[in-house]
Write a protein that binds this DNA or RNA. Structure first.
Lengths: 193, 193
DNA sequence: GAGCTCACGTACCAATCGGTACATGTACCA
DNA sequence: TGGTACATGTACCGATTGGTACGTGAGCTC
């Protein structure tokens, strides 16, 4: 029933790792903005004293949680293997991945942290580093390796990231799966051909 | 130097309206999530007692602020007049409007509230009502009136909203005006033709 | 077995929070 | 001129916050 991938994977006896797993799970379910150490602590069966002991401070914990979520998302498409199918099909597969209902809490949290980061919240601003580039660069490189013009490839990749995030915002707000799927399909057929 | 449009416009002697104007201005500059009544009050030259007096409670004030921001944004494109120029040119004009530096605080606040709303924050969830539809419907209707297929027109409009918001997120995070402009231009030329 | 590190519970702290009680002043209206 | 609605200042309230002081016990090492 865990929603996050655990690198060291479960049953570790490192108490900090256990607490972080539980904290991430709780934050995924309840959001980040009105988090209190005491509430979180009782929810995951510890005391706020222990959270501060293991993470130094509240912001230390928040940074750790954000890093974990960022890391999860960065590896979400690692096994996509775009060479094994036509580009349009890869796009559809990626879209289907992102809109898996199980990932919705991740997306929600991502956009919540994004919003906080744009307002300069201390722990969150780090998220903005590479929040575009780390997605655009691989995608553009793939096209460039296949002979695309670098300028155009980068612009197209950037547009693709924007479409994905924009439609995710739509999906999370409306829940209208068919509607956003139709819009994404228009993107695939018109832009990516 | 004011960033918000004031319907009753300045110099009103309604103290609630004056407070709301000042509150919106302050929230645009400092964000919404870590707002405290006392901090806001001293920043705008009043006491937190007065904020509660005029808005009932903190959430009453937040709702009022959100409503104002929503209203501002809803009327941002009222005078766009798409019939007076080719569609692609209208898209470019809209994009130039949204990315005006003076509007950046509005966009930041919009995405902050959006993120909070997705997490179910009481005052913010109202924002989600029509956050897609109120932009998609007029745009799609315009195309339908000119003979477009309704299904396709709606999907295209939805994609347009997603592209705009996705690239705004990019712009606010990176500040790379040229990069997002190039990506938007790809959208205009490839999708909207 | 002395000493030390790590993990943890209890109890506390000052600060800040949203909200309220109460008194006061001011303007308008009878 | 008396009354009344509105606006405001001061002072307070209980609750909650992040963070700390201090003691303790388990396990490991010399």
């Amino acid at each position: 029933m865990r929603a996050t991938a655990n690198p060291t994977d479960e049953a570790t006896d490192d108490p900090r790792a256990r607490l972080l797993d539980a904290a991430v799970e709780h934050v995924l379910a309840h959001g980040l903005s009105d988090l209190s150490l005491r509430e979180l602590a009782t929810a995951i069966g510890t005391s706020h004293r222990m959270l501060i002991y293991h993470f130094g401070s509240k912001s230390g914990l928040i940074v750790a949680v954000i890093r974990r979520v960022e890391e999860d998302q960065r590896h979400a498409l690692d096994d996509l293997d775009p060479a094994s199918r036509p580009p349009a099909e890869t796009l559809r597969l990626m879209w289907r991945r992102f809109t898996s209902p199980a990932l919705a809490p991740h997306e929600r949290l991502f956009f919540e942290i994004y919003g906080q980061a744009l307002q300069g919240r201390p722990g969150a601003v780090d998220l903005l580093d590479g929040i575009i580039e780390s997605w655009v660069a691989p995608s553009a490189q793939y096209a460039i390796d296949r002979g695309a013009d670098p300028e155009i490839a980068r612009a197209d990749a950037r547009l693709g990231v924007a479409v994905t995030r924009g439609l995710l915002l739509d999906w999370l707000a409306t829940g209208d799966r068919a509607g956003v799927d139709a819009a994404f399909e228009r993107y695939v057929t018109r832009v990516a051909r």
